[in-house]
């Protein structure tokens, strides 16, 4: 269970998050949508302690992580897998070493066991045999999938996807979401995903939260999003030019 209570975060004078209350039950799939620069990525980084809130609490399974030191957060982060918006692959490592990194850092596994899991994971994302390549040699879609492999290699209980399909073509987008869904169904992990591609996202998640002007403006089932009572949400989801949505 992930809980955010009255979370505030400002950068300079601009209040990015202005009182966020959000609960994600264990095993749930939550999608977060909202206009550009509405603080979606900030929200994700607060959940795993990469950023600290100015006020409020972030609880994971009942313990508040906001007061923890960087070292103290390591145990919590070991339970979380994170796919970064721009992949964030280590450009000085091979693909294999990138995927192995979270396991290798944790220790306790023999090298051939790690190598075995890495190749299994790469096969699962459709990139079998690419261990020795460098990230710079891959296309955008391949980098995304390496990022997914790295985020999920250690079987995390919570997986966070920041824009898993940005910049990908529609076919690759479907493939990526199929992969994410298959993964979640086998592991039963809690998933939080941010995406600008609302339609594709809604086919993957159960519930959707709409982030607008620093607050969660709407939260509801993914299927019924287009019929949401709130005109702002409706306008955003349908992409209408006319309506109450600002900036």
């Amino acid at each position: 269970m992930i809980e955010l209570a009255a979370v505030r975060k400002r950068f300079g004078r601009h209040a990015v998050l202005d009182g966020i209350d959000l609960q994600v039950p264990t095993g749930a799939r939550l999608g977060i949508i909202g206009p550009a620069a509405s603080g979606k990525s900030v929200l994700l980084k607060l959940v795993c302690g990469l950023l600290r809130p100015d006020a409020g609490q972030v609880m994971i399974d009942g313990t508040d992580i906001t007061e923890r030191s960087e070292e103290g957060l390591a145990a919590t982060r070991a339970r979380i897998g994170f796919l970064f918006q721009n992949y964030a692959l280590f450009d000085f490592m091979t693909v294999g070493d990138n995927v192995a990194f979270p396991l290798a850092r944790r220790g306790g596994l023999a090298e051939d066991e790690i190598a075995r899991r890495v190749s299994a994971r790469l096969r699962a994302v459709g990139l079998a045999g690419n261990e020795a390549k460098m990230p710079a040699e891959l296309s955008g879609g391949m980098k995304k999938r390496v990022g997914i492999a790295r985020a999920t290699i250690a079987h995390p209980e919570i997986v966070i996807y920041d824009e898993p399909t940005a910049g990908l073509d529609p076919v690759t987008t479907s493939k990526v979401y199929d992969l994410l869904r298959a993964d979640q169904e086998t592991t039963g992990a809690t998933v939080i995903a941010v995406s600008s591609d609302v339609e594709a996202l809604c086919r993957f998640v159960d519930t959707v939260a709409f982030l607008y002007q620093g607050k969660i403006r709407y939260q509801g089932a993914a299927q019924t999003l287009t019929d949401a009572p709130d005109p702002v949400v409706r306008q955003f989801v349908r992409g209408d030019l006319e309506g109450p949505l600002e900036g």
């Binding site: 980084k45 990469l50 280590f90």
Partner: peptide
């Protein structure tokens, strides 16, 4: 700026 530092932190690396 490419979030590789955040990715390090996610793996428990300072």
């Amino acid at each position: 700026v490419t979030e590789q530092v955040d990715a390090l932190r996610m793996s428990g690396v300072l």
